[in-house]
């Protein structure tokens, strides 16, 4: 079934995308300025996917993210205050400063963690889907992963088991064309990761991951089928990361051309979506601008909260190892 997309839903997707973009642009800057320790994997360019999938979910539905995981948490309802505090390593962060960017999570929102291990998430999402079925809820579990992770054995095992047990699980491949710095053509012999779906006994669908409406419709169908006991789907969203595998610098690199980046930027999920919403009379350019400004204020407030927050007590280093 294809879900009816209302103006409210369009606006909801739009706001989620803007929240991700604005957060990530600022976070990348903070990392470059040395204010955020460690390494960030930015979601800029891929916003349509998390945003259009998450409008189908409640807090009782589960997701597993990736190392590029801020967007997943933001789209799932993550608050900038606790997110920035976590990126800063502060005691007030979602993970009390113990996880950072790569392990950011919030179980109250059903977000079972970004993951520093490529392919670490699919088995966990499959387990959460099993839990939904075991506990006889109508909830679903979504595994986000990349084209790179599709080569991990963990993904294969999870996909096979989800199909075998007909679990309420949706595998969403964010194919951004690169496994870290290696182009897809150099890491797998297929073009569409979704081609693997029939091998697991589940439907495989390919959509334009830069088009939030296309993602919304395909994800809606897969999620509805999962909720009704119809089993998993492998949904591949073709997308692109504007910035590097890690950090910000996206241009002038040896492993991809600047022309390629520019071509993909023409398909920008937010710019094109806003043009469409303006054309449909759903959101005027002025109103869109106001949303960007409002979100930017929310980002600044988040940074302020993080900077004013205390560092963890050094004694906390061995706390939370065991329940």
């Amino acid at each position: 079934m294809s879900s009816e997309i209302t103006d409210d839903i369009l606006l909801d997707i739009h706001r989620r995308m803007v929240r991700i973009r604005t957060f990530e642009e600022r976070a990348g800057k903070m990392m470059e300025d040395g204010k955020i320790p460690g390494a960030l994997h930015l979601y800029v360019g891929q916003e349509a996917i998390a945003s259009a999938v998450m409008v189908h979910l409640s807090n009782e539905d589960y997701i597993t993210g990736t190392h590029r995981g801020h967007g997943h948490l933001i789209a799932k309802g993550g608050e900038f205050t606790y997110m920035f505090a976590e990126l800063y390593g502060k005691a007030t962060g979602y993970c009390k400063g113990k996880g950072g960017s790569m392990h950011i999570s919030n179980l109250d929102l059903g977000m079972l963690g970004a993951n520093g291990i490529v392919g670490g998430g699919p088995p966990i999402a499959m387990g959460a889907a099993f839990s939904c079925k075991f506990r006889k809820t109508k909830n679903v579990s979504i595994s986000f992963f990349g084209d790179g992770a599709s080569n991990e054995g963990a993904f294969h095992e999870a996909a096979n088991m989800a199909a075998l047990y007909k679990l309420p699980c949706v595998f969403i491949c964010e194919n951004n064309g690169y496994g870290e710095y290696t182009p897809q053509a150099n890491h797998q012999a297929i073009v569409d990761v979704a081609d693997r779906a029939p091998g697991y006994g589940m439907p495989g669908v390919v959509v334009d991951g830069m088009d939030a409406v296309a993602v919304y419709e395909a994800a809606g169908e897969a999620i509805a089928r999962a909720r009704e006991g119809g089993g998993p789907t492998l949904l591949e969203c073709k997308t692109y990361r504007y910035y590097d595998h890690v950090g910000v610098r996206g241009m002038g690199l040896s492993y991809r051309t600047d022309e390629e980046v520019e071509q993909w930027r023409l398909k920008d999920p937010i710019v094109n979506f806003e043009a469409r919403l303006a054309e449909q009379g759903v959101l005027s350019p002025e109103a869109a601008q106001a949303i960007h400004e409002e979100v930017l204020k929310e980002v600044e407030a988040g940074i302020e909260f993080a900077e004013a927050s205390p560092d963890p007590d050094p004694a906390a280093v061995t706390e939370d190892v065991y329940a």
Partner: peptide
């Protein structure tokens, strides 16, 4: 559990 700040 640890990575999630004791929240799992």
């Amino acid at each position: 559990r640890y990575m999630f700040g004791g929240r799992a």
